[in-house]
Design a protein around this nucleic acid. Sequence first.
DNA 1: ATATTTTTTTAGACAAGTCTAAAACATATT
DNA 2: AATATGTTTTAGACTTGTCTAAAAAAATAT
Lengths: 218, 218
Amino acid sequence: MVTQSEENYLKAIYHLGKQGSISVSTNAIAEKMTTKASSVTDMLKKLAEKELVDYKKYQGVSLTKEGKIIAANVVRKHRLWEVFLVEKLNFSWNEVHDIAEQLEHIKSQKLINELDAFLGLPTHDPHGDPIPDREGNLQKSQKIFLSQVNPSVNCSCVGVKDSSDNFLKYLDKNSIAIGTAIQVLTKEAFDESMTIKINNSELTISKEIASNMYVKIN
Amino acid sequence: MVTQSEENYLKAIYHLGKQGSISVSTNAIAEKMTTKASSVTDMLKKLAEKELVDYKKYQGVSLTKEGKIIAANVVRKHRLWEVFLVEKLNFSWNEVHDIAEQLEHIKSQKLINELDAFLGLPTHDPHGDPIPDREGNLQKSQKIFLSQVNPSVNCSCVGVKDSSDNFLKYLDKNSIAIGTAIQVLTKEAFDESMTIKINNSELTISKEIASNMYVKIN
DNA sequence: ATATTTTTTTAGACAAGTCTAAAACATATT
DNA sequence: AATATGTTTTAGACTTGTCTAAAAAAATAT
């Protein structure tokens, strides 16, 4: 049995080390989890004992195959629940994280498979991040920042980087949401601002805005 | 903050003592929670400290107003999640309990209110038990056993008492589910068996079956 | 009314997960 | 290479929730 706390450590290692394959430091984990390095060391020993991580003193830590599967499954659950909250229960992007942090620890294989089907087998969560499949494989996300798109290219919004309240309100005001089609019209070399076309209306956006929105080229 | 464990104790007291108003014994709680009486005593002290229960040594325990609200809310969450699992995720009655035991501890007022609305403000869970409202009030359940219904009366199935696999399979086989309309045709005085009408087809059922099904008079 | 049985509480111990403070190790600087 | 700085681990302590074994109180039986 893997405890809730263990799952959280595995998830942190997974996120810090590119799906857990790269070795990450004790301090990095401590910072990510807002805990103390000594607590991390204690936990790493326990996880190594259970063969969920490869750990050598002072050498950093990475996930074993088994650890990677568990971590990917936690991430899968987290992101599926986020989709559920946004699509079915009227939550907005920035409200879902804390609740998904709780829901990701619910243990039931059937539950998560049924939820997946109920949601229509989504491949990305409301922030545009990919949802690991049952085997823990990630669909290679081909999302890029809107700021990287060249004029006259058509793309559609798939997510945001920073989902602060202010930013989401800005998107709302300009009727931009997940799936909204966007065409880049012009790109100003001086300040990297852009004009874009949404639903046949033009909009000028700053570099800050453009580099906070993820899009997919159509 | 109320811990998960505290919530479980409050819930046990709530169920054992008719919504927690009647005083229940240490041993009864221990048995219900499959733990030891000494552990219960420890927890009762803590809950009394937090003014969630009225507790005097050797005198049993009952919920305070505050404790009752918390317990009712846990029960509310448990039963709403059960409805969700059965109605939306294709679970059957007997599969939902363990998962609902986990989900009932998720903390988010908005989540539970939205879920409630999403499910259409249900008043009863898949077992026919009433769902406490936001204030913790129970709708007086007017469910009775099918065995108590008199001939020629129309009613509909609202739940079962014992949800063993065998029993649920029996119901399935005879196309009886929540909401199924049932008319009692005859009642045999000798063995209390009945004939009933479901979807225009007749069925004879034993006393054992009839006294394991809850119905509501139409 | 006293003895016996049952229930409940206390006392002390343990595991999980965390912390602080100090020691050990690794890295960077000169 | 020696020292300074930063990182990681160890040692010991604390909290929560649990347990066992023994003591205390209450209920029951004789």
